[in-house]
Design a protein around this nucleic acid. Structure first.
Lengths: 352, 352
DNA sequence: AGCACTCTTGTAATCGATTGCAGGCCGCAG
DNA sequence: CTGCGGCCTGCAATCGATTACAAGAGTGCT
């Protein structure tokens, strides 16, 4: 026993596989565990001399505090869960990047989950919260996991991004969808278009009626009568956008421009145009929404509405962390600015 | 004090915000914490009657064991880290899906990390391991995070997917890249092509020389002399593929077919062809590698080599979990089958 | 010398589980 | 009646940290 301790004092640790604990460090540095803990957490409380000695041992043993033990004691896991409905969707990746950046600045770990809108998966990530392995939740899907209290004191720290659940107090970081959509359609109108179709989003998502409202608003602002035949719902996918656009282009009096509720369906619309032998933008203008990476490399490159995705992610993470750390931010509603990115899929139109 | 306990016994818990602990359950059910723990973990050790009583209290209080406390005691976090070099890359999303499926079957949590090949980010995720918040590591990037022991008893459970670090004992789940590449090029040869270009991967990635070797092998098998001028390195991106293909198509005697080291660069090649006014597949055949989603919706849809990505992910997770749970699987090398998916970007060629 | 104060450090309780060990109870065989 | 073995259950140690509290040393003042 003495022997073992002496080996430890000389060499750091006996078993190379085992990691040093705070007790090892304390023993080797000849102080109590309390002092080791303080040296790391609040060095100003420890004398110069002791601090030096402890730090030396910390270095030589490669000691890292066990996060589980710390989290258990402090009741703070220093980790947050980010629930993404679909990893494959490029719209989310940039948001997540922003989140990670902000999280690591405050030394929070990010536990990312791909739910595919599957309640089972949502629940399984929700467990991490109930488990105490995470302190808060960032939701990109506009839906609460089943069994998660939406309000009241039992609600864990949550922030919604982009989409929310109407009627609850959860903070939200978003853009002004109606205004952004109106801006996009307004741009088409300014180019001379009068007959403008709308490839809408799926009815189940809040975004859809919001962007549709902006579309309608833009038309009405310049006295263009709203024609329901020019609106076809899709599902935010390439395939859905292609089919919806095809229906619009097959109309007896087809639109000269399309406003698509997101970029992916706009890509579908570009394909539908090509399917029919229409040139974009000469015969048809197409405008998307989101500014995903693909928009830049599509043929032609897509004119679209850019959301400041990384900033939105960072902002949401910021609000979440501050909530976790005790600020009362309930009911916050943060609106981020958007930007129209003009590329090659739109051009002016003179009545023929 | 007595008062509080009576309220608890009647109503479950006093404060609705606070979560029940094993002590609460034990007290209310009038048993020891040991019995509660056993009821949940090894019910067969507990008498029918007691089990019923405990379970009732567990239900009514909504008790969930604190994972941190358990992990601290059992020294098993029941969580693994998955390091993805680039979330935006659709190649990885399917792999990750397979991993998640297998993990949740064994009740492991998946902590996903987007490293962007940044050593800083890698280190920050590595901390979760050193921290004891995770039990193992799944690497999709073919590189070890800095400071991670590659071999010896100190090496944590790790599995590589798709790419590995040559010369270390870490298990690997992969495909046979040379053989798969050879199959693809062989297909072009069978279609009648004789002058076949190769848009290669970046030199830094192991995949690149492997696929290049397969390309060369296929040519040599039918006595087509290898021409270095027909090989241009790109970087697995759309842009890089486009530029590389442009160089090949600008050759005095341009190739009639291109084998691209991945789908994204193949998309770039398709664009380069269109830039030059070439029709695919009539004037140029293009074949990719990976079979990402985009391959199906590109114009024309891309002929490519499909990797069983979900299965690879699931398999890798399987090996990792078994390693964590004590099986000695060091040095394992699992090779998964690939499949040639013929779509519209390739057609037969008769010498003109 | 005595007292008050600051500066450092250690003691020990605590977070919420798991689990080895021991003891109580019961039935049954000798 | 005694002893033994099997079934349940509880006691208490343990995982590895944090932190309230107390105690001792040193300083300065009266």
């Amino acid at each position: 026993m003495r022997q073992e301790e002496e080996i430890r004092e000389a060499d750091g640790l006996v078993e190379p596989g085992a990691r040093a604990t705070i007790d090892d460090v304390a023993r080797i540095a000849n102080v109590s565990t309390a002092t080791v803990s303080r040296t790391l957490a609040r060095p100003e409380l420890v004398s110069e001399e002791t601090r030096r000695r402890v730090m030396e041992v910390v270095e030589s043993t490669g000691y890292r505090p066990n996060a589980l033990a710390r989290a258990l004691r402090t009741r703070a896991a220093q980790a947050v869960i980010v629930l993404v409905p679909d990893f494959g969707n490029p719209f989310y990746t940039e948001i997540v990047r922003g989140m990670e950046r902000r999280a690591s600045a405050s030394d929070y770990a990010v536990l990312m989950g791909n739910t595919e809108s599957d309640p089972e998966r949502e629940r399984s990530y929700m467990r991490l919260l109930l488990d105490r392995r995470a302190d808060g939740l960032l939701l990109l899907s506009g839906r609460l996991p089943e069994g998660c209290p939406a309000d009241g004191p039992a609600r864990p720290p949550i922030v919604f991004v982009s989409e929310d659940l109407p009627g609850c107090e959860v903070p939200l970081v978003r853009i002004d969808n109606p205004a952004a959509a109106e801006m996009a359609v307004r741009y088409l109108i300014d180019l001379g278009h009068r007959r403008i179709g709308h490839v809408a989003g799926p009815p189940g998502r809040i975004l859809s009626p919001e962007r549709h409202a902006g579309y309608r608003q833009a038309l009405e602002a310049v006295q263009i009568p709203y024609d329901p035949a020019l609106v076809v719902a899709a599902d935010f996918t390439f395939k859905g956008g292609r089919a919806a656009a095809r229906r619009l282009l097959d109309l007896p009096e087809p639109p000269t421009a399309l406003f698509c509720a997101n970029d992916e369906s706009a890509m579908g619309a570009l394909r539908a145009a090509r399917d029919k032998g229409l040139r974009v933008p000469e015969d048809l203008s197409v405008i998307g929404f989101d500014d995903i990476q693909l928009a830049e490399i599509s043929d032609p490159p897509l004119t679209t509405v850019r959301q400041p995705r990384a900033e939105m992610g960072a902002k949401a993470m910021d609000v979440l962390i501050r909530t976790i750390e005790g600020e009362a931010l309930s009911g916050l509603d943060i609106v981020m600015p958007v930007e129209l990115v003009v590329r090659g899929s739109t051009s002016s139109w003179r009545p023929r």
